[in-house]
C-alpha cells in the first residue's frame, strides 16, 4: 500500500484528522502563549537590569533577575515542566495552561538576554536626547529605546520563537495532547509509524518555514528607512 493510500485510510476514513487538528491547535496555543509571556518577562527583566546597573536601590531586584535567568537557563525545560505539573501546580489538571506558563517562564530567561543586548545596542545619545527633552527614564525607554531595540533583535526573537515551537513537543510528558503527542497516539492506535510521524515532522517544518518568511517581510518593512545593511 502506498504512503498516500495509507494516509487517506488513517486520517480520513478512520477519522484521526480530528486528533491531529487538536494537537496542532494545542501546539499553536502553547507556543504563542509562551511567546507572549516570555516577551513580557524578558522585557521587564531586561529593563530592570538596564536601569539597575547604575542604581543602588535597584540592586536587590537585579539580583533577583540574575537568579531567575541563572536557574531557568540551568534546568532542562522538560524537568521544569514536570516540576510545574507534578509539584507546583499538582492540584491543577489543566496541562495546557501549565505548559504555556512553563514554556513562557523558560523562554523569558532567554528573551531577557536578547532584549538586553538590544537595549545596549541603542546609542546612549538616544537616552540623553529623551531625558534632555524632559522625559522620564521610563518614558524614554518606552517611546525611544525599546522600539529601536526590538528592531535590532527581531531576527533573534524569531529564532527563539522557532526554538520554542519545537521545544513544545515535550508537552506530552504532562498529558497534553500537542502535535507530537497526537502523532504518537495515532502511531500507537494504528500500528503505523511512518505516516503519522512524517506528517508531524512536515507540519513543524512548514510552520518554521512560514515563520522565517514572516521574519523577512517584517524586517523589510521595519528597515525601509534604515541605513543598516539589507539582508
Amino acid at each position: 500500500m502506498s504512503f498516500f493510500t495509507k494516509f487517506q485510510e488513517i486520517f480520513i476514513e478512520k477519522g484521526y484528522y480530528n486528533l491531529m487538528l487538536e494537537g496542532f491547535k494545542n501546539t499553536l496555543i502553547i507556543t504563542l502563549g509562551a511567546l507572549v509571556i516570555g516577551l513580557v518577562i524578558g522585557t521587564i527583566v531586561a529593563v530592570i537590569k538596564y536601569f539597575g546597573e547604575d542604581s543602588k536601590p535597584m540592586k536587590p531586584l537585579v539580583w533577583l533577575c540574575d537568579l531567575y535567568t541563572t536557574v531557568v537557563r540551568g534546568i532542562p525545560v522538560v524537568v521544569l515542566l514536570l516540576i510545574f505539573f507534578f509539584v507546583v501546580f499538582a492540584k491543577s489538571s489543566n496541562g495546557i495552561a501549565i505548559a504555556t506558563l512553563t514554556f513562557g517562564i523558560n523562554s523569558g530567561a532567554y528573551m531577557a538576554e536578547l532584549v538586553r543586548s538590544g537595549l545596549n545596542a541603542v546609542n546612549i545619545g538616544q537616552m540623553e536626547a529623551g531625558r534632555s527633552l524632559g522625559m522620564s527614564k521610563m518614558q524614554t525607554m518606552r517611546k525611544i529605546i525599546l522600539p529601536q531595540a526590538i528592531r535590532y533583535i527581531l531576527p533573534a526573537i524569531f529564532n527563539e520563537l522557532i526554538a520554542l515551537l519545537k521545544e513544545t513537543s515535550v508537552a506530552g510528558y504532562v498529558t497534553v495532547v500537542d502535535l507530537t503527542r497526537a502523532g504518537n497516539l495515532v502511531r500507537n492506535n494504528t500500528y503505523n509509524a511512518v505516516v503519522p510521524l512524517t506528517l508531524v515532522a512536515v507540519v513543524y517544518l512548514v510552520l518554521v518555514i512560514l515563520l522565517t518568511r514572516l521574519l523577512k517581510v517584517l524586517e523589510r518593512r521595519l528597515s525601509v528607512n534604515d541605513r543598516r545593511r539589507k539582508s
Binding site: 546609542n123 545619545g125 538616544q126 536626547a129 531625558r131 534632555s132 527633552l133 524632559g134 525611544i144
Partner: peptide, 17 residues
C-alpha cells in the same frame, strides 16, 4: 524632568530618533 523641559539641548551627534 519638569526643569529639563525648560532647557532645550542640541547635541554634537544630533541624536534624532
Amino acid at each position: 524632568n519638569a526643569h529639563r523641559q525648560k532647557m532645550g539641548m542640541v547635541f554634537q551627534q544630533f541624536n534624532l530618533f
